[in-house]
Design a protein around this nucleic acid. Structure first.
Lengths: 219, 219
DNA sequence: TTATATTTTTAGATATGCCTAAAAATAATT
DNA sequence: AATTATTTTTAGGCATATCTAAAAATATAA
């Protein structure tokens, strides 16, 4: 149906649209996909011809409904495979991205239907990111950064903003993973660092840590 | 490491070498891979430069040790994924080939190590074909056609020669699948048909059926 | 507002992997 | 052995997806 390159462009544009909430620039796509802006222009024109996005010269692009559907389907596959790799093959959550980048392009509707069922139709991937349903719809989540949480409030870790091995390994050391309950005991306004409770342990974390951890608060 | 096209050529040549036991011709490769002989010549020269096979103009090709290793690794992946699809995702054995053709190209040593362990390190795929080990070595099998089995001997179904949906559906109806024990009760020399026992059922099968079913006899 | 900087596009080139058509080598027939 | 048929290779092209370098449009600053 679509080439590997096309799927990767649509996926990247989908993510960028969610970040910036407006037209996506050629440069932004080039950076995200690690290619040159001139290559992006070429591909974007091709995708516009296929009605997967709208494109006006020098004005950036926007996915059409069709384009969004394709992108969401690729993301759904990526995240389902990540769940498989972590839950069934016991990979660590910081090892699965590259493999899922390949698996997301396997073409078979039936495969994804069965994989989803096999995994118990999960709503979130191992990084806490929501898995689009078969129609491309994302479960609405009230996820905030830990740094936005007030003193004496608590939340459940549902994901990370940055996912460098260093950061993930830090979290591991501190026994923080998806599903871990975190309570904010105190906040330093000077530098944004905070005292938190994880299980029975209490310790300080820097603002840099707090602004890269997503938590879900119960409303 | 290797492109999709390269892996498919190596795999096809590997299979052809096992069938004909001698140099593989350009035409044979073209037919097996469904492409034109001229394309085969191109690719074969490229693979020869990479020392994956030896090639003499007009004389056909032969895989080198390196080439065999790559081919066996692709076949190992293909067959492991087929086991996954049938055993874990409940696909029927006649539905998995196309999907495995895609999955076999996923690049990750660790993934295959873990998939193999997850599946219990199987020796055979759902069609009864042996799965090469990580070094590319195949378990020696004494597989014969059911038509070669003598009266009163028995064997375990380990695969099929033909794998058309019609044939596989026939086997399904007769409750014959991989692992099914089959005993030859009698043989008609005139037409090669035979009376067999499968479970508690006894029935006649034609020679055509018997010469398309592989069984393993205990020696 | 004019000059400078940035972003984006065009034009032309490259590598992969395929194709067709024609030439060359090999195999099979008469 | 000479002709015919088959197989294989070469030559020249095409599509995809990328690149560099230069031109054009847009944004920013003096």
């Amino acid at each position: 149906m679509f080439t590997l390159a096309e799927e990767n462009y649509l996926k990247a544009i989908f993510h960028l649209e969610h970040e910036s909430k407006c037209e996506v620039s050629t440069n932004a796509i080039a950076e995200s996909i690690e290619t040159k802006p001139s290559s992006v222009t070429d591909m974007v024109q091709k995708l516009a011809e296929k009605k997967l996005l709208t494109y006006k010269r020098y004005k950036g692009v926007q996915l059409t409904a069709d384009g969004k559907k394709v992108a969401a389907s690729v993301i759904r596959k990526h995240r389902l495979w990540e769940v498989f790799l972590v839950e069934k093959l016991n990979f660590h959550w910081d090892e699965v991205h590259e493999i899922a980048e390949q698996l997301e392009h396997i073409q078979s509707e039936e495969l994804i239907i069965r994989l989803d069922k096999f995994l118990g139709s999960p709503d979130f991937d191992p990084h806490g990111d929501p898995i689009p349903d078969k129609h491309g719809v994302l479960k609405r989540t009230e996820k905030k950064l830990l740094s936005e949480i007030e003193k004496n409030q608590q939340g459940v870790c549902v994901g990370v903003k940055e996912s460098s091995p260093e950061f993930l390994q830090y979290l591991d050391k501190k026994k923080i993973s998806i599903g871990t309950k975190i309570k904010v005991l105190g906040k330093e306004f000077f530098d944004g660092s905070m005292m938190i409770q994880v299980g029975s342990e209490q310790f300080f974390i820097s603002h840099k840590i707090a602004e890269n951890l997503y938590v879900q608060t119960q409303e």
